[in-house]
Nucleic acid binder design. Sequence first.
DNA 1: TCTATCTATATGCGATTGCATGTAATATAT
DNA 2: ATATATTACATGCAATCGCATATAGATAGA
Lengths: 181, 181
Amino acid sequence: MYLHIVVKIDTLAKTGYIPCMRRPLPDRTIDAWARLLRASHSVLTAVESDLKAAGYPPLAWYDVLLELKRAGRDGLRPLELQSHMLLAQYNLSRLLDRMEKEACVERRPCPDDGRGQIVVIAPEGRQLLKRMWPAYEAAIGRHFAARLSADEAARLARLLGKLSPSLAVRESGNNPGRSRG
Amino acid sequence: MYLHIVVKIDTLAKTGYIPCMRRPLPDRTIDAWARLLRASHSVLTAVESDLKAAGYPPLAWYDVLLELKRAGRDGLRPLELQSHMLLAQYNLSRLLDRMEKEACVERRPCPDDGRGQIVVIAPEGRQLLKRMWPAYEAAIGRHFAARLSADEAARLARLLGKLSPSLAVRESGNNPGRSRG
DNA sequence: TCTATCTATATGCGATTGCATGTAATATAT
DNA sequence: ATATATTACATGCAATCGCATATAGATAGA
C-alpha cells in the first residue's frame, strides 16, 4: 500500500503536476543547464565531424574498442560494456553488429551463460584504435582543451563528475597512442 | 601560395598526422572530456525520457517554441533560429515540418526575401510551451539541479561558457511557467 | 541584361536511433 | 519437476539524423 502511493507520487512529480514539489529553480541553475546542452553538443559534433572528415568511424567505436582492449583476451559481455559506456542495449547490439562486420571485434559464445556472449577486440580493431587516437586527441585539443586551462579542466571535471554519479567514469592515463602514460 | 599551404597544414593537423603539433594532452584534460561526454549524455537522456514519459515532444520543440515566443508576432527566419539553437539546417527544416503539422508553428512567406520564410509561434504552440515547462523544470531539477549546489551550478556555467564561445547562449530569466522571472 | 555565383530552404536516401517486442536461456517458486 | 518470471541479447518498424544535392530566389559581374 505504501509502496503503491510512493510510486504514484513519483509519477506525478515527474510530470510536474504537483506544484508544491516544484520550488522554481534558480536562474543560475537553468543557465547552467542551457550551457551544458549547448557546450556539450557543439563540442561533441565538432569532434565527431573532425574524426569523420579524417575518415574514422564515430566516437562510440573508439569507446568500445578502448574498453575491449582494456579487457584484454577475456573480453567483455555486452552488458558490461553497456555499464562502462553510455549506450542503450539495442544500440550497443547493433553497434557490435557493425563493428563485427568490419572485423574490429569478435563475438564468442559465453561458456557460463548460454544467453550471453563474449566480445573480444580483433586485430583490425586494435589497429583502428591506435590509428584513431592521434586524430581524436587532436580534435579534443582543438575543440575542447584549447578553450580551457589545465586548472579549469580539472575544476570542470570535478563538477561534471557530480552529474553522472553511479557511472564508472573512464579513468584516463593509459590511452593508446600515448607512448608513456 | 601561402594560403594554400596554410590550408593543407590545417587539414593535416586535423587528422593528427603532424606529430610535432600534438603535444599530448594532460590526463586531467582527457578526463574532463570523458566526463563531459558522460555527464551531458546521461543527464540529457534522463530529462528527455522524463519529458517523453509525460507525453511531451522532445526538447528541441521547447527550444524552438521558446525562441519563437520571444520573437513575438514578427517571428524568426529559420536561419535566425539556427543561430540561437544548435541544430543543422536540414534538421531544423524537418523539425519545423513536424511542428507545423501539429499546428505549433506557422510558416509565412517572407516579404523581403522570396527564398525565405517567417516562422511564427501558433496558439497551439504557446499552449504546449506553457504546459511543458513544469515537466521540464521538474526534470532538470531531478536530474541536474539536485546534484549541484547553486554555487557549483554557477561555476559550472562559467566553465561551460568557455566551450561554446561564439554561441548566443540562451539567457534565462523569462521562462514560461515562472510567474515572476 | 544576361550569366555566374551565392544564399535560404527543402528533400532523397542511407545510416542510426528509440520503442516495443521477440527469442532463447536461466533463475525462482510451488 | 513444472510453470512462471527474469535476464541477455536481437530485431521489426517507424522516426530521426547526416550527407549530398536540388530548387528557387538574390546578388554580382561583364
